Computed example of a mutant assay.
Amino acid sequence: MSEQTEATPRDLRRLNVSVVTAALSATGALLVITDAEVWWHALLLAIGLATALFTVNRSATDERLTVLVPGLVVTAVVWAVGILVAETLSASFGPAIVGTLFVQRLPRHRRAATVLLIGLGVVVLAAMPLTLGLSPFELLTHSVATACVAITGSVLTSLVQVMSGLVDELERSRRREADLAVSRERVRFAGDLHDIQGHTLHVVKLKVALARKLLGRDQGRQDRERADRELGEVYELVGDTISRTKELAHAQRRLNLSAELENAGNLFEAAGIRVSVERRNEVDPRVGEILGQVLRETTTNILRHAQAERVRITLTERGISIINDGARTGPVTELRGLAALRARVIDLGGELVVERSDEDFLTEATFPAPGASLSDDSDTVSDITARSWRDAR
């Protein structure tokens, strides 16, 4: 069994928030230690820092502004008390963190919100001479120190948004690559279809035109024989084209299960999806071709219809099972490609199951061993996949 170990976008977002939180915690703790003169100063600064850190982590999973408003109110109160009563300049660290998140989450009027928050800060600083009796020089130094602390908190917090944007762009890029891979497969299919039918239809057109011309004459023996020969060739050409088109439609041309496994792995990797493959037995060559078709169609459906992060593929001697997470809620989408394959699997004596359980989606094709029925298998491929899927979680 091979595992793709690339971090998913969700993992990267969590890592981003964890790193920024650690930096904010270290910086905030240092400010508390150096700026607090008595125990209640330290308690006040610790409340502001804890509120800011809680808001950062909470907002990472909930993008509503209502999550930020309580944090902004608490840190603003801590700042006002810290500046005007305790004269702790580092009290601006908390509101700078939450205020930065608040401004970044606003879809509009970001500039107005920034000006409003800065204006409130200026008002609080302007009140310092009245409450603390500071000289102009002391007011200037206090203002500069407070601004430096606030800028530090704002810059560190902005890293969350910057990295989140990069992760979103990476995810979009991977999905574009997956869509491009699917598009390339469609172009290849269209090219094969053109190769099969384009030349044949052109020849058929010429031969039918010639037969009509021959039949339009006095129809001597030679003309009738030649017209009959041309129409016979047209009949054979059309029959051959129908057979070759069926082969192409059912993906029988050059289809190889191992190649399909490699192709599916590359597509999932390009989309940022972790995939694991488990082979319990060597696949029976008599069913390998149709199992490859099931795998190809399921891969396309996962890329187009799911928001998957993990896929597990299990192969047994006469079966394949593909299970993925990220299934969309609501009624199961009609997958016409799999519906057509189900009919072929049933014609060959097998069974194709498509079902959803919560956010997991299962596609399973199973063929009985020669002389056995499907119910004879005590340990089906879906049972194996389900156990492996639960163990992986």
Score class of each variant (00 low, 15 high):
residue 2 S to K: 09
residue 13 R to H: 15
residue 14 R to E: 15
residue 16 N to R: 10
residue 20 V to P: 07
residue 21 T to H: 01
residue 25 S to N: 06
residue 29 A to I: 15
residue 43 L to Q: 00
residue 47 I to N: 05
residue 49 L to W: 04
residue 52 A to R: 01
residue 52 A to Q: 02
residue 52 A to W: 00
residue 60 A to E: 12
residue 67 V to A: 13
residue 70 P to W: 13
residue 71 G to L: 09
residue 71 G to Q: 09
residue 72 L to H: 03
residue 73 V to C: 09
residue 74 V to Y: 07
residue 76 A to C: 12
residue 76 A to W: 11
residue 77 V to P: 05
residue 78 V to C: 08
residue 79 W to K: 13
residue 81 V to L: 14
residue 82 G to L: 04
residue 86 A to T: 13
residue 86 A to M: 00
residue 87 E to Q: 13
residue 91 A to L: 03
residue 96 A to W: 02
residue 101 L to I: 07
residue 103 V to T: 08
residue 105 R to M: 11
residue 105 R to I: 06
residue 106 L to A: 07
residue 110 R to V: 03
residue 111 R to H: 06
residue 114 T to D: 00
residue 118 I to W: 06
residue 118 I to E: 05
residue 120 L to R: 01
residue 131 T to E: 07
residue 131 T to M: 12
residue 133 G to W: 02
residue 142 H to M: 11
residue 151 I to S: 04
residue 153 G to M: 10
residue 153 G to T: 13
residue 154 S to F: 03
residue 156 L to G: 00
residue 160 V to G: 02
residue 164 S to V: 00
residue 165 G to E: 03
residue 165 G to A: 01
residue 173 S to P: 04
residue 175 R to F: 00
residue 179 D to E: 09
residue 180 L to R: 09
residue 181 A to Q: 11
residue 181 A to K: 08
residue 183 S to E: 07
residue 187 V to D: 08
residue 188 R to E: 14
residue 191 G to W: 07
residue 199 H to T: 14
residue 203 V to H: 09
residue 209 A to W: 10
residue 211 A to G: 03
residue 214 L to S: 01
residue 214 L to I: 04
residue 216 G to C: 10
residue 217 R to V: 10
residue 218 D to M: 00
residue 219 Q to W: 03
residue 220 G to L: 06
residue 226 R to V: 08
residue 227 A to P: 01
residue 229 R to F: 09
residue 234 V to H: 02
residue 235 Y to L: 04
residue 239 G to I: 04
residue 243 S to A: 11
residue 245 T to Q: 15
residue 247 E to V: 05
residue 254 R to W: 02
residue 259 A to M: 09
residue 276 S to C: 06
residue 279 R to P: 04
residue 280 R to F: 15
residue 280 R to T: 13
residue 281 N to R: 13
residue 285 P to N: 06
residue 288 G to L: 04
residue 289 E to I: 04
residue 293 Q to R: 09
residue 295 L to K: 05
residue 295 L to S: 04
residue 307 Q to P: 01
residue 311 V to R: 08
residue 313 I to V: 15
residue 315 L to R: 08
residue 315 L to Y: 06
residue 318 R to S: 04
residue 320 I to Q: 02
residue 324 N to D: 15
residue 324 N to E: 14
residue 327 A to I: 00
residue 328 R to D: 06
residue 329 T to C: 06
residue 332 V to W: 00
residue 333 T to E: 03
residue 334 E to K: 12
residue 338 L to Y: 08
residue 338 L to W: 02
residue 344 R to T: 14
residue 344 R to P: 01
residue 346 I to V: 15
residue 347 D to E: 15
residue 350 G to E: 07
residue 352 L to D: 10
residue 354 V to P: 01
residue 359 E to K: 01
residue 360 D to F: 09
residue 361 F to A: 02
residue 364 E to T: 15
residue 364 E to H: 12
residue 364 E to L: 12
residue 373 S to L: 15
residue 375 S to R: 10
residue 376 D to L: 03
residue 380 T to K: 14
residue 380 T to S: 15
residue 381 V to S: 05
residue 382 S to T: 15
residue 387 R to E: 14
residue 388 S to P: 00
residue 389 W to K: 10
